[in-house]
Design a binder for these strands. Structure first.
Length: 676
DNA sequence: GATTCATTAAACACTG
DNA sequence: TCAGTGTTTAATGAAT
């Protein structure tokens, strides 16, 4: 088409083209991590650092655990047991006990979960280890005791068999065995109580006495609301019970423990004493009746024929059997209480997170609802970031405030956001139509206000980014240290930054090539390495002014801030520029990948300034000084800012590229107090 | 309804 | 010949 107009290079690429393919192979190999040009994102580094930290903690824990194990084994050797007894449980006849007798060691996985979920402090971990050691000693004693009993029983059994004993005597033996088991179980119960007391001291989430207890299922299985309700019930019941807490039937306790480790059915069978649990009969029925009365046959812990108790998943054919199961397996005992505690913490954390998000949302909404006369609504960097980045989510949050956004269809994929470019801070104040660049189908919501989150999101989620190819390409190029990329490197950037582009390579690569050729802003340049693609800032600037028209102070501000804030997030800058939001360096800090855009942005700003001075229809003449200061152009792409260089650093497409004339259509009057 | 834009698909040419 | 690159055209859908 008419590519030649802007730059010479566009014309005949093939003639010039040479070794560009050299770089290609890098990409084609799927070297997503290759990133020789850009390197990894800071966010990823931070995540890696955290991971390393966690792993170190975990390793330390494992070392401690091994020490404990060694101690235990030594003790066992000195005692009567063979070192391996811990691992392979002796008693075949009493699976329940076997489960209980397994070494009280937290598995690495559990440790990891604990670390991830609970974030224990080193002190807590130490305490935990100590308690674990004490428990192991206790358990060792139990094991010895149990062993002895087993041996005695076996001896008796053998003697009886040899002597041709009568069945009655065998029954006696069986009863004896049962009695032993019960004794053992009682001891275990004591142990459990001890554990519980330990937990109450602060380590509630961990059940040292129940190594086999799967923590993860516990944390996953419940909905917060369910948990809350359950927890309330349990806590109330538990408090009442504590006075008589030791009265639990030991058998119940063990069965529940077993069920946790080996979900379900076995435990169902094993609970002959369900009715014996007095507390149980008192509390659980009440619990059931509550939800049951309201929703006959619907119970928060029951669904799809499965018990939804965390970690259970026992199959219950009907509601009655579920109730039975609930009564028997999830009676009010230490284990259930502990599980509830675990869940409670999970819920608390979730609630905390929710509260934070809500707060953030509120701040965003508040900020966005602020009238132009209410300056400084959110001067803080944090607010700024959110306001800038969020435009989309904010739009959803308060649609009414965004009359212009109507065009945006709802985002099908995620409810959180509408689309990338819906609202800018400026747009908030404007009623003017904002044109959305991206069709709905491409309008993948960017849910998080945090740019970095977006980056991670698109890196991992196969969601189509709500940015045009042109904007993505430009972003890729601008992010590169030299602001130039080979086609292959562009490909690489796409695949590295977006999970979505790890599929259907032929399609999107074709689109990339198409866009490179189509848009004037992309200039093909001969390089030593071969042909590279750059962004023509001149072309870019042609259109630029219109967008950033207006706010000289803003521009100035941006320029100055850029001067000492090189590392500033270019994306933020761009977005701010577009949105006429003053720069807050903190927001952009720490995003090296975006730093490259700084100069480009500066140039853009310069051009904008010139433009502003010279003409610019965008800025309405009649505005008050304050208004004049505010960015006039309300670009449709509020997003730009974010996209622009956000974590993804996607520059909104249209705005920056010369090709996008339409952008100018939009008007804006948004007054941004921040500017001053 | 017309226009514009982005996307997608495809064809073609050139190069190594 | 093949793969990669680059250009161009056309069809389609969405937004204005």
């Amino acid at each position: 088409m008419m590519q030649e107009s802007g730059t010479e290079t566009k014309s005949n690429g093939s003639a010039i083209q040479n070794g560009s393919s050299g770089g290609n192979h890098l990409l084609q190999c799927g070297s997503l991590r290759e990133g020789r040009s850009n390197g990894e994102t800071p966010a990823a580094d931070a995540g890696a650092a955290e991971l390393v930290h966690v792993q170190q903690q975990q390793q330390a824990l494992q070392v401690a655990r091994q020490l404990l194990l060694q101690q235990q084994q030594q003790q066992q050797v000195s005692g009567l047991k063979s070192p391996k007894r811990n691992d392979k449980q002796p008693a075949l006849q009493v699976p329940v006990s076997v489960a209980m007798m397994t070494p009280q060691v937290i598995t690495p996985q559990q440790m990891q979960q604990i670390l991830q979920q609970q974030v224990l402090s080193p002190q807590q971990l130490q305490v935990l280890l100590q308690q674990q050691q004490a428990l192991m000693l206790q358990q060792q004693q139990l094991q010895e005791f149990y062993k002895k009993q087993q041996e005695q029983l076996q001896l008796q059994l053998l003697q009886q068999q040899h002597a041709g004993k009568q069945p009655k005597e065998q029954q006696q033996v069986a009863t004896q065995q049962l009695a032993f088991q019960q004794q053992l179980l009682q001891m275990q119960q004591l142990q459990q109580q001890h554990l519980l007391s330990l937990q109450r001291q602060g380590l509630l989430t961990i059940q040292p006495g129940q190594p086999a207890l799967p923590l993860q299922p516990l944390a996953q299985g419940m909905i917060p609301t369910e948990l809350q309700q359950l927890w309330k019930e349990v806590t109330s019941a538990h408090s009442a019970e504590e006075t008589t807490g030791s009265n639990h039937s030991s058998l119940d306790l063990t069965t529940t423990c077993v069920s946790s480790s080996a979900p379900s059915k076995t435990s169902l069978i094993m609970n002959p004493h369900a009715s014996t649990n007095g507390q149980l009969s008192v509390h659980t029925p009440k619990r059931e009746s509550l939800s049951h009365e309201e929703h006959p046959h619907s119970h928060p812990l029951y669904g799809h024929g499965v018990c939804k108790w965390p970690g259970c998943e026992a199959v219950c054919e009907d509601f009655q059997s579920f109730l039975k199961h609930l009564n028997s397996e999830h009676a009010l005992d230490d284990r259930s209480t502990a599980q509830c505690r675990v869940q409670m913490q999970v819920v608390q954390q979730l609630e905390l997170q929710l509260a934070k998000d809500k707060e953030r949302l509120q701040a965003m909404m508040t900020h966005l609802h602020v009238k132009s006369t209410e300056p400084k609504a959110a001067p803080q960097p944090l607010n700024l970031v959110s306001s800038v980045t969020l435009s989309k989510s904010a739009s959803e949050a308060s649609p009414q405030s965004l009359p212009h956004t109507p065009t945006t269809p709802t985002a099908p994929i995620t409810p959180v956001t509408q689309g990338p470019s819906v609202i800018t801070t400026t747009s908030m104040h404007t009623v003017g139509p904002i044109r959305r660049r991206y069709s709905d189908k491409y309008n993948v919501p960017i849910s998080s206000a945090d740019i970095a989150q977006n980056q991670e999101f698109y890196k991992n989620a196969e969601v189509r980014p709500p940015f045009t190819y042109a904007s993505l390409i430009r972003q890729a190029i601008l992010e590169s240290p030299e602001k130039q990329l080979t086609l292959n490197e562009i490909y690489n950037w796409f695949t590295r930054m977006f999970a979505y582009f790890r599929r259907n390579a032929a399609t999107w690569k074709n689109a990339v090539r198409h866009n490179l050729s189509l848009h004037k802003c992309f200039v093909r340049v001969e390089n030593v390495k071969g042909a590279v693609w750059t962004v023509d800032e001149v072309e870019f600037q042609k259109r630029r002014p219109q967008k950033i028209s207006g706010n000289p102070s803003l521009i100035k501000n941006m320029q100055t801030s850029h001067a000492y804030c090189t590392p500033l997030n270019a994306a933020l800058q761009a977005s701010m520029a577009e949105n006429s939001i003053p720069l807050y360096t903190t927001a952009s800090m720490g995003n090296p990948t975006l730093g490259n855009l700084a100069s480009a942005i500066r140039e853009e700003l310069n051009g904008a300034m010139e433009h502003t001075n010279s003409n610019e229809s965008d800025s309405s003449p009649g505005r008050s000084p304050l208004q004049a200061v505010h960015p006039v152009h309300v670009k449709e792409e509020p997003l730009d800012p974010e996209e622009a260089e956000g974590p993804l650093s996607l520059v909104t497409t249209a705005n920056h590229s010369p090709d996008f004339d339409h952008d100018r259509d939009y008007e804006d009057e948004p007054v941004n107090e921040d500017m001053e």
